[in-house]
Structure formats: C-alpha cells, structure tokens
C-alpha cells in the first residue's frame, strides 16, 4: 500500500505550478552569482553598473572557481533552506488549504504513510532541483572560463552543496509538523524565516553546532570561517531534530482533531 501512497503523492504534483516555480527560483541563483562574477571580472563594469556594481565590489568577490563554489554553497545553503521549507509547507499545507485533508485522513491507509510519502516526495523534489541546478551552475562556470578549476575543488564544492542540501532535508520534518499543526502553509514558512534569523544570531554566540538552524550557516561560513567538517555533536542534533519532527508530524496526523 505504501507504494500506492507514494505514487499518489507524486500524482498530486502533476500540473502543480509550485514545481516549476521552485526550479525557476533555484535556477536563478547560479545566474545571479555568475552576474556578480562577470561584473567584478572587469573593474570598469562595476562603475558602469552603479548600485549593482557597487554591491558586487562590496561583496569582495573574485571571479574564480573557489569563490564561485563558496557563493554557490552560501546561496544553496540559506536560500535552499527557505525553498525547501516552501516545498514542505506546500506538500503538507495545501491539503488543508484545499480542504482535502479530511478526504485523505479517512481513507483506509495508515496515516503515517502519508507523512512518510510526502517527506520522500519533498526529498526527491529537492534533490532533483539540486542536481539540475548544480549541472546548470557547472555549465555556467565553465562557459564563463573562470580561473582556478580543479577536480578536487569541484568535488569539495559539490560535496558541500550536497551536505548543506541534506542538512536542510533533516530540518524539513519540523516544517511539516508546523504545517499540519497550523493546517496551512503560512506558519511553516514564517517559522523557517524566524529560525533562519535565529540561526544566524546563535551562530555568533559560539553555540552554532548545537542549534539545528545554525549548522548550515556554520558549515558554509556565514557566521564564522567555514568549518571543514561538522562537529559530531551537530550530527546528533540534526538526527534528533529529524526524528522529533517526523514523530511529531505522524502523531499530529494520527491523534489530533482534524476538524478543517
């Protein structure tokens, strides 16, 4: 039966504008970075382009592959966390927005399968986006002829993007729980924005490795110098957050009143 639940969750994405919207938003990120790189490569362009040029200069960017990967990890890590929150909020919250939750929850299907299937769809959706946009980013970088490319650098850069994406996935079940608890899409997205801000604040206190929403900023160097490898404690915190979020979502679907 779980196979059918998973299949129907994918069917529900058919013709959904959200899939294309998320692809468009994520696909713009490497283009935005490339634009900045193109500006800073020629100092004269920065002056010509006014505010945009000033921003690119202020960011202290160099038009090199190491900087390109650093920026990719930064925007995928932070922007990606919000985008994934949107995906999860959409998958869980729209059942309440469209008032289809009541139809879903009185079917002869164990309710936890819906939670698991939706999280798997979110993971597949998210990873497909990351792979597509990584390919796009590599193509853009190569087309620009950025200096400093090496296979080792590419492997490290891609690994960091994938690690940031995976960490975002581990935080997703909490967003799912907020969506089913609040019966909508607004609260989980607002929650993610607040957590992102708190994550940056916490990151500056030296406790970044213990606060789940500081771990991506810690990894990508948003709150301090980038760490090469995450401390073991961070993995424990992430695993606990994932387990708590998944458990809370399942319990909410199973035992809470569904009166919407």
């Amino acid at each position: 039966m779980f196979g059918q639940v998973l299949a129907t969750e994918f069917m529900k994405l058919h013709r959904a504008k959200a899939t294309w919207a998320t692809l468009a938003v994520l696909a713009l990120m490497p283009l935005g970075i490339a634009l900045f790189m193109w500006i800073v490569r020629e100092p004269g362009r920065a002056a010509q382009l006014g505010l945009l040029g000033t921003k690119a200069s202020l960011a202290g960017l160099e038009a090199t592959w190491p900087q390109y990967f650093y920026m990719l990890t930064l925007v995928f890590g932070v922007g990606g966390m919000l985008l994934l929150a949107f995906i999860v909020a959409y998958l869980f919250g729209r059942e309440y927005r469209d008032a289809t939750a009541k139809n879903m929850l009185a079917l002869p299907v164990a309710r936890h399968w819906f939670a698991v299937a939706k999280l798997l769809v979110a993971a597949a959706w998210w990873m497909a986006l990351i792979v597509i946009v990584l390919v796009e980013a590599m193509a853009i970088g190569l087309a620009m002829g950025l200096p400093g490319f090496s296979a080792e650098l590419a492997a490290t850069g891609i690994a960091n993007v994938l690690l940031a994406a995976t960490i975002s996935l581990l935080l997703a079940p909490v967003v799912a729980w907020i969506a089913v608890w609040s019966r909508g899409e607004v609260a989980p997205i607002a929650f993610s924005l607040v957590m992102l801000a708190l994550g940056n604040l916490f990151g500056k206190t030296g406790w970044a490795e213990w606060f789940p929403y500081s771990i991506v900023p810690l990894l990508i160097g948003m709150v301090a110098d980038p760490v090469g490898t995450l401390p073991a404690g961070s993995y424990v915190v992430l695993a606990a957050t994932f387990a708590a979020g998944t458990g809370a979502t399942i319990l909410q679907l199973r035992f809470a009143d569904n009166s919407q």
Binding site: M11, K12, R15, D98, T100, N103, L107, P108, R111, R254
Partner: peptide, 23 residues
C-alpha cells in the same frame, strides 16, 4: 484515532465537496 482499516468499507462526503483543484 488513527485506526483506518474499516474505512475500506465506508464511502463518505464531509461538509463541502473538495478535490485536488489542479487535477
């Protein structure tokens, strides 16, 4: 709560008629 097996033998319509609008 959460035991849904019997609903394979039950058809239902609760309050407003709803469906996935884009399907």
């Amino acid at each position: 709560p959460g035991e849904t097996g019997v609903f394979s033998r039950v058809g239902f319509l609760v309050e407003t008629a709803t469906a996935y609008p884009h399907l």
